[in-house]
Design a protein around this nucleic acid. Structure first.
Lengths: 167, 167
DNA sequence: ATAAACTTTCATTTTTTTTTGAAAGTTTAA
DNA sequence: TTAAACTTTCAAAAAAAAATGAAAGTTTAT
């Protein structure tokens, strides 16, 4: 396998993976492309390499920037914008975790808190509902806090976590 | 808010969450419904409560069973099948992690290993590609191993993990 | 063996998500 | 100020994913 083929394979696979994780294919592909690029890449080049339209490129780049994992970069003497991806993997993981927590876990917790707080009659099914959603609330809250803690570590948290767990 | 409303809200929200996590809406809803049900539920009841077709219910139930988080249950004297969900949350989390690892992480690792192993010329961009995908491979491998370790804990791993991290 | 009770399958339809591309908007240089 | 260079927006089109439902398949009781 030579370079171009490998690069293409990586971009395609990363795109497929993205779509299983609630990130759309193009967004993941753009990110993949930027991750393995030495130099900042222009929108033109992205469109060209991924064979996508201008609008698509623009929208997904903006989304990646919103997620905080792609940055605008400027080249001296160049008018147009270039883009780079966050390349530090710890930093990347932290940013993605934070963003997903904010967008998905926090709202879910809100619902769980609400529904687990209903006043119930003595009926068995109502008791069970309240108990089960209550447990779920505690569980998700705890899991979310683990993410927060991890974020505090910043540097190399995964390595450190592995150490702790192995010990 | 009263019981029925709360139950409905929970099922709807869990469904929405599911679709952000690569699990389809109905699958997540069925799971939610079973999670908070006191008693095993028949396919008929699921169709009725979620307003979905027989085929849809059948396919998604089967998928949930494949994931190992929903079980068939039999009621004495009843001919048709009933279903229950895994209600222990630690067990549930472990099963979901394992399944996602198998379906998504392992294949991704395979690709990462392949593409990071290419023979390269001395060109800067090729070097960078190899280095970056290599790092990604190590990172993902490590993350996946954390999941495996967690699985070994079995009982209450989340609590124990929180303890370790806090300490 | 057969028919009733139930479940699964899968071609078709529906819904949802993503992409396109042209028009509108913005920025910069002269 | 203006026009060239570039980016964003968004309605419409295309593509992808999910749902339907009727026919085929299974199981069980008699």
């Amino acid at each position: 396998m030579e370079f171009k083929e490998a690069k293409n394979k990586f971009v395609q696979s990363w795109g497929a993976l993205g779509s299983q994780w609630g990130i759309n294919k193009t967004m993941a592909q753009i990110h993949a492309l930027l991750m393995v690029s030495n130099q900042p890449v222009s929108m033109e080049d992205i469109m060209d390499e991924l064979q996508i339209s201008r609008g698509n490129a623009s929208m997904n780049l903006r989304a990646l920037i919103d997620w905080g994992i792609v940055y605008k970069a400027f080249k001296p003497g160049e008018r147009r914008e270039f883009f780079t991806a966050e390349k530090d993997l710890d930093e990347l993981a932290v940013k993605i975790s934070k963003e997903r927590s904010k967008r998905e876990i926090k709202p879910a917790l809100k619902v769980l808190k609400e529904v687990s707080s209903i006043e119930i009659s003595g009926a068995e099914d109502e008791k069970h509902f309240k108990e089960q959603t209550g447990k779920l609330y505690d569980f998700v809250l705890k899991a979310d806090n683990v993410l927060d803690k991890i974020t505090e570590y910043r540097e190399n948290w995964l390595t450190k976590l592995v150490m702790k767990i192995m010990s």
